[in-house]
Every structure is written in structure tokens, then in C-alpha cells.
Design a protein around this nucleic acid. Structure first.
Length: 660
RNA sequence: GCCCCAGUAGCUCAGUUGGAUAGAGCGCGGCUUUCCUAAAGCUGAGGUCACAGAUUCGAAUUCUGUCUGGGGUACCA
């Protein structure tokens, strides 16, 4: 039910008498919103105050005029004026109940009408590098993108999901090199992906070591410079002790010195640690300049070298299987998986086209696109002739335009790449993709407990599947706590318990991710997200299970579903009205969540709904044998609550269980 | 240096795009179980919305400046 647009349409003719500009009228209509003051109003129109200057009248008089003209008699029980000129609307319980009955009669869509003008979206999300093991950093894009796709589809849009796999980059040079030099044939035959990740880590460690060794002189130099700068700042400050800027400069210099020192010490320590490992040192000596060698392997692959191409073709299916097993477990599907390799043949033409349009120029041996407002250009071809992800991204956008003709393209990618996307969009508009809304749906970095980006560190990778296992076992400990299960009459089978733990555990991970505003960073804390209290998926799943439990009890008491399913819904208690109003807002909430593609709008709504239901069922008994009308009405309300919670969770990619 | 993002309760975070007395969860204090699952509910304490100006009927929200933290910044993605 689109309550907001209905109410706004009633105000529109009244406001239009004063606001002839369509923009001004729309701005005024947008000031009609759900009220935060639930004790005063269900909806409120904050339209009188801004008009006082234009009309030269006090806001209360304007509000009175509006109230006398606007026709809401069928929807509202009362339309009143309060405060400085707020117009407060209280919905009619009868009208509200009628709307809810309509929603209840339509359990699949809950009376949510498909949008009038459906758009085509291409949504790019997840996009892991296939040769590297998936880790926690990948989950945000995957979960947020999946949820946005589901919500847009439910609202009636065409949403095409595309997993832009990193299947063509330097990491393949690494595993190809590793395979040629360090492979363990037995291990590869048994578990190819595990062996490939081992090879990846072996190569990465050597490169890291060699880079660190090469970097130490530079870091030492930087350290000395920082020392010098600090000394200079101190000298200047001594000459002018009252200058506050110099005091600040000293603090900055001191901090920089500390940072330089930290970096140097870190590099030294890591070199020192590896030096203790004699096998490792032998290997490192046998493969000097490994970074360069890896780049050569990558270049050979890209230029069509038969041996490397064969290896790549042998590796990719294994790597994809591994990644797909994670998606299967998370219940996530993509319409397309056009990886980077798919665009490889298109890249030369992209660069040629950019050169022909004089958008790209040679600079420092590379081919670059210089853009207003940025120091650094977007490089589309390296000195050595290799292409970069920016080139692939342009090709991808061109391909999608041709293939899908989208109205909007969403890129669900870490916010650290925002500058890249700004440049990319700039270039895309210049080459004519002007009819597509391009949007970087950025999200905050997943941080470790130290507050630093959660990255794959060689040796200590937190794999995604083991993380999911941890969440599920954490959920098991809580859900299948023997003490808790003893209190229940129902005896759960082992299979049921496993299913519940899996649903609750995976729900916990997804929900923790979705419930934060996507734009902010979020600290990954396994302990906390597996906690099954407060604003978590488990709480909502539990409330859903409670609704089902009540319906089961009704059935066992002989109250037939057919009867209450068509019985009148009557809202009389305050908590019934609050819950009913909340359920009525489902469609408006979903539309709101997609204005800026924020799934946390949905999680917040579901949490609120679950809490309202909890308050309601504690206060009022649903099954009241001596008042059958009330019982049947409340059964409908309970069922509709359950359906709404289930649908909402479904749109977040989170499942429910009938008992827990 | 330049550019971007953030700063809200002890902690983790919301805050419907400028609306009424700034909200949750966790933690802390108190209360509620003969009753549809107490994984619950009710309730109390806890705030200079980083700071200073500006804009206007009205600012956590917009603008300017300052402070603090994070990220990015020419051939990784």
C-alpha cells in the first residue's frame, strides 16, 4: 500500500493553489511524512510553516486553511493542528484494517503493486578474484548486492545481476608461476583449489619478502628525512615560541617520524622472520625478482601463449567451483558471470577509440585519459602494453550498454574505489553513455578488530567458508543449548537442529552486514554478530517462529484456518494499531530503501516490526476462547506480521524456520 | 600537498534527506513467568550530536572555518 502517495495526492490540489511551480509543489508534498511522534500522529504534514513568508500569514492560520480544504475523511479519523503549525493525521482504524486485509489476502506480494515505470538495472556485485581464497572482505559486496537485486525485482524492476569475476589478473601469473615451479602433484590431484591457494601464498610470500628487502633502503631514507624535518620544525619553533602553527607542525612531524619508524621496523621484522626460514631463503634466492617474473607469466597468458592459456583453462573451472560452493551455501545466484577474461579481446579497440576521440593521450610511455579535477590520469594502457582494470571496466560498460540497454548501472564496490568510479563514469559519459544512470553503490571497509582494513595477509587468511562454519556453530550453541531445549515440549530432530543452526548462523552474518548503513565502515566482530539478541536476524527469525507457533496452536484448538482467514480484522488496542500501522508501511519502506539503495532501512523496519509484535503478544493474548471475533482478528494480524517478516527477510537473502 | 569520507550515550550503531522532548542494542540498576516458546516484556540512569560561526519560522542534518581519525592520490584491483 502506497500510503504516502495517497495522502500526498489529497494535499496536492490544496497546496497547488499557492505553489504553482511543480518543483515547489513536490518539495512541499515531500514534507508530508510518517510521524516520529507516534503519540501525536501517524502521519504529519510540515507544510504550513514554510509557507508563512510567501503568504504573509501566521502558520497556524495556514494550517487551518489547509485542514478545512483537504479531503481525508475516508482515510483519517482525525486531522488536527499542533505545535507551530504541524498538521497531524491519525488514520481511521477501519481504513487501516481494510488495507491490511487486502495485504493479507495476497500473501505473495502483500498488496505491493509493481512500479508504474519499470526500469532495467545492471547490478555488478561480489566480483571476487577467483584464484585467491574468498575472505570476509568479499561478503559485503555480495550480501548488499544480492539484497538490492531482490528488492528491485520485488518492486517490479528488471534487475540483471552480473558477477564481474577477476579471472584474468596478476594473480593468475602468480599461480601459473607457482604451478610451474613449486607444485605438489599429489596435492593438486587430490584438492586442486587448495593446492592453488597454497601456490598463491608461496609466491606472494616471496614477492613480499623481496619487496621488503628492496624497500628497506627507501624506508631508511624516509626515516632520516622525517628525523630531519622534526629537527627543523623544533629549531624554527625555538626561534618563535609563540607561533602556534609551528607547535602543530612539530606534532605532525613527530607523528610522521613515528609512522616512518613503524614501517621500517615492520619491514625489518618481516625480513628477519623470513631469514630464519632456510628453505624459504633458498627458494627466494632461486627465484630472484619474482614480481617481474610473475608479470611476464601474466603477459604471456594475455598474449595467447599456449602453455599458459592451457594452464589457465585448467585452473579456472576449479577456482569457479570453489567460489560457487560458497554462493550455493549463501543461496545467491547471478544472471551472468562475465569475468574480466571475457572482455580481453575488446580492450585494444577501446584504447583505439579513446585515442581516436582524442580523449586519451600518450604520457610517460602509457596511454592516459586526463580528467578535470584530478591530478592523476586514468591509465588505460601501461608502458609495457598491458591493459588495466580501468580498460576492462570501460569495455564492460560498453558491452552492458549494447547487451542490456540498462536505465541504471549499479556498482556495489568498496568505497576506497570511489575515485576510480568517478573517473570511470566521467569517461563513460564522454564516450556517450549518457542515458544510463551510473551509480557507485559504495560501502565502508570491513575492518578487523584492530580498526584496520581486513585484508588477506599471507599466512593468516580468514577464509570465508570457515567463517560461515564458525557462525553456524555459534548459532548451534545458542539455538540448540540443551538447557533451552529441555524447556520445550517439542523434540527437535538432529536434522531440524542443523537446519536451524545453518539458517540462524548465515542469517546472523548477512544481517550484521546489512544492518549497518552501507556507507560507514564496520568492524567485523564474529562474537557480536553471532550473539542472538538485540538487533539481529535471530531475534526477527524468533518472532517469525512465534507467529507460526500461535497459528499452530490455533489449529490444534480446532480454530480452522479457513474461518479466520476471511474473518474481519478489527484493530482496537493501541498495540494492535501500532503494529497495524507498521505493517501498512511495508511498501513505502521498500521504496524508501531503494532511493539510496540502503538495505539497512529494511533491517531497521523488520526489527521495529518484530519488537512491536513482541510487545503486542506479551500484552494481549491472541487465542481467547471466550471472544472468538477477537481471536480471529488477531490471528489474521499475527499471520500478516509473520508474512511481512518472512518477506522482508527473504528480500535480504535471509531464511526463516517454523520453530526455533 | 591535494581530493574524498567520517566524528551522535561507557561500547556498537540508527537517525525517513531541514521538523515537535535526539533514538535502539549491548553493558549497568529495578520489576514481570498458574497464561499462545522468558531467545521475551516493562522500567530507570546515561548526551555540549567533535569545536566555532553562518543560513531560517526551525539545524545532529545545509554552508564556511578549525580539530581529530580513516581512505585515495601515474602504470595493483
Amino acid at each position: 500500500m502506497r500510503v504516502l502517495s495517497l495522502i500526498r495526492s489529497r494535499f496536492s490540489p490544496v497546496l497547488a493553489t499557492w505553489l504553482t511551480e511543480p518543483n515547489a509543489l513536490n518539495a512541499a508534498l515531500e514534507r508530508i511524512v510518517p510521524s516520529r511522534e507516534s503519540n501525536l500522529a501517524d502521519y504529519q504534514a510540515n507544510v504550513a510553516m514554510p509557507l508563512q513568508k510567501k503568504l504573509g500569514k501566521p502558520p497556524l492560520a495556514i494550517a487551518e486553511e489547509i485542514v478545512s480544504k483537504v479531503d481525508l475523511s475516508d482515510i483519517c479519523e482525525s486531522v488536527t493542528i499542533a505545535g507551530q503549525g504541524y498538521v497531524n493525521l491519525r488514520l481511521s482504524p477501519t481504513w487501516l484494517a481494510n488495507c491490511l486485509m487486502q495485504a493479507h489476502a495476497d500473501p505473495d506480494r502483500l498488496a505491493v503493486a509493481p512500479v508504474a515505470t519499470a526500469k532495467t538495472y545492471v547490478i555488478d556485485y561480489s566480483s571476487p578474484n577467483v584464484a585467491k581464497p574468498m575472505h570476509v572482505g568479499h561478503i559485503r559486496s555480495t550480501v548488499i548486492g544480492d539484497s538490492i537485486t531482490k528488492i528491485l525485482r520485488f518492486l517490479g524492476h528488471k534487475a540483471i545481476s552480473d558477477n564481474h569475476l577477476g579471472d584474468w589478473g596478476t594473480q593468475f601469473g602468480m599461480i601459473i608461476y607457482g604451478y610451474k615451479n613449486f607444485r605438489d602433484d599429489v596435492a593438486f590431484a587430490q584438492a586442486p583449489v587448495a593446492e592453488l591457494s597454497r601456490l598463491y601464498r608461496v609466491v606472494q610470500r616471496i614477492i613480499g619478502f623481496q619487496d621488503a628487502v628492496a624497500n628497506i633502503p627507501k624506508l631508511e631514507l624516509a626515516f632520516e628525512k622525517a628525523q630531519q624535518k622534526l629537527a627543523e620544525s623544533k629549531a624554527k619553533s625555538a626561534a618563535a615560541p609563540q607561533d602556534k602553527k609551528l607547535v602543530k607542525e612539530i606534532a605532525t612531524s613527530a607523528r610522521q617520524l613515528e609512522e616512518a619508524n613503524d614501517e621500517l621496523e615492520k619491514a625489518k621484522a618481516s625480513v628477519e622472520e623470513s631469514s630464519q626460514d632456510s628453505d624459504f631463503m633458498v627458494r627466494s634466492k632461486q627465484h630472484p625478482d619474482l614480481g617481474q617474473r610473475v608479470l611476464k607469466e601474466t603477459a604471456k597468458l594475455h598474449s595467447g601463449d599456449a602453455e599458459n592459456l592451457n594452464l589457465w583453462e585448467a585452473f579456472v573451472p576449479n577456482c569457479k567451483d570453489e567460489i560457487h560452493s560458497v554462493y550455493t551455501r549463501l543461496n545467491i545466484q547471478f544472471d551472468h558471470e562475465f569475468g574480466e577474461s571475457y572482455y580481453h579481446d575488446m580492450l585494444p579497440a577501446i584504447v583505439e577509440d579513446l585515442l581516436a576521440r582524442s580523449l586519451a593521450v600518450q604520457s610517460g610511455g602509457a596511454i592516459c585519459v586526463f580528467l578535470d579535477g584530478y591530478e592523476a590520469p586514468m591509465i588505460v594502457q601501461k608502458q609495457d602494453g598491458a591493459y588495466l582494470y580501468s580498460t576492462t571496466d570501460i569495455a564492460t560498460a560498453v558491452f552492458r550498454e549494447r547487451e542490456f540497454a540498462p536505465d541504471a548501472s549499479l556498482y556495489v564496490v568498496d568505497h576506497r574505489q570511489s575515485e576510480h568510479f568517478q573517473k570511470l563514469f566521467d569517461v563513460l559519459r564522454k564516450i556517450g553513455l549518457i542515458h544510463t544512470e551510473l551509480k557507485h553503490v559504495e560501502f565502508g571497509t570491513v575492518l578487523g578488530e584492530d580498526g584496520k582494513p581486513f585484508k588477506t595477509r599471507s599466512g593468516t587468511v580468514v577464509g570465508l567458508s570457515s567463517m560461515l562454519d564458525e557462525a553456524v556453530s555459534g548459532a548451534w550453541d545458542v539455538v540448540c543449548d540443551p538447557e533451552r531445549l529441555q524447556k520445550s515440549d517439542y523434540v527437535f530432530t538432529e536434522a531440524e537442529k542443523r537446519h536451524i543452526a545453518e539458517t540462524v548462523g548465515l542469517g546472523a552474518i548477512k544481517y550484521a552486514d546489512l544492518s549497518h548503513n552501507r556507507t560507514s565502515n564496520y568492524v567485523f566482530d564474529m562474537k557480536k554478530m553471532v550473539q542472538l539478541q538485540g538487533n539481529t536476524a535471530a531475534y526477527i527469525q524468533y518472532m517469525y517462529a512465534r507467529t507460526r507457533s500461535i497459528l499452530r496452536n490455533a489449529e490444534s484448538e480446532g480454530i480452522e484456518t479457513d474461518k479466520w482467514n476471511s474473518a474481519p480484522l478489527v484493530l482496537s488496542e493501541t498495540l494492535e494499531l501500532s503494529l497495524g500501522l507498521q505493517l501498512l508501511r511495508f511498501e513505502d519502506m521498500l521504496n524508501q530503501s531503494m532511493v539510496e539503495y540502503l538495505p539497512n532501512v529494511v533491517t531497521e523496519y523488520l526489527y521495529e516490526t518484530a519488537k512491536l509484535f513482541a510487545s503486542f503478544y506479551v500484552q494481549h493474548k491472541v487465542l481467547t476462547p471466550d471472544a472468538m471475533d477477537t481471536t480471529m482478528s488477531r490471528l489474521r494480524l499475527t499471520d500478516l506480521t509473520g508474512l511481512t517478516l518472512r518477506k522482508g527477510l527473504e528480500l535480504l537473502g535471509i531464511g526463516v524456520v517454523e520453530r526455533m
